[in-house]
Amino acid sequence: MIELGKHTKSRRDILDKVERISEVDVFACYQCGRCSGDCPSISLMDIMPNQAIRLLQLGEVEAVLSSKTIWVCASCFTCTSRCPKGIDIARVLEALRQVCLRKNIDQLDLNNIPEEERERYPTIAWVSALRKLSG
């Protein structure tokens, strides 16, 4: 058996939570990389979607929770649609965001958006960004 050895109790708890929120089994992933190949947000990611899944398998939950990756995802479902193992990666990323957001850690600082920009944004952009990036 592979010695993972990194699934401490608190890490196991977070993994369980991610699994419960997403109902996705990350252990089905066999690291083909397809999900990362077609991701539109890849240029802003510090770890690629397939790496995020691998880190979760290894129990390295902190590395994924503190990544930029989960926040620059655009929820486009390309990865989800193309994974040969049927893994809903977009759902896993949403669960990871929720683990953070449910602790009231907001990721969207409206002060960073220049005034003249704010006025021209469509309603749909505000609502979707706030729902995805704030608690």
């Binding site: 539109p40 655009a74 505000w126 960004a129």
Partner: peptide, 20 residues
């Protein structure tokens, strides 16, 4: 035709959307 435009990242990461 099936590629994502960056969606709501237009608020948080405008440069991504410009690139898309």
């Amino acid at each position: 035709r099936l590629e994502c435009c960056g969606s709501y990242q237009t608020l948080a990461n405008k440069d991504l959307v410009l690139e898309r």
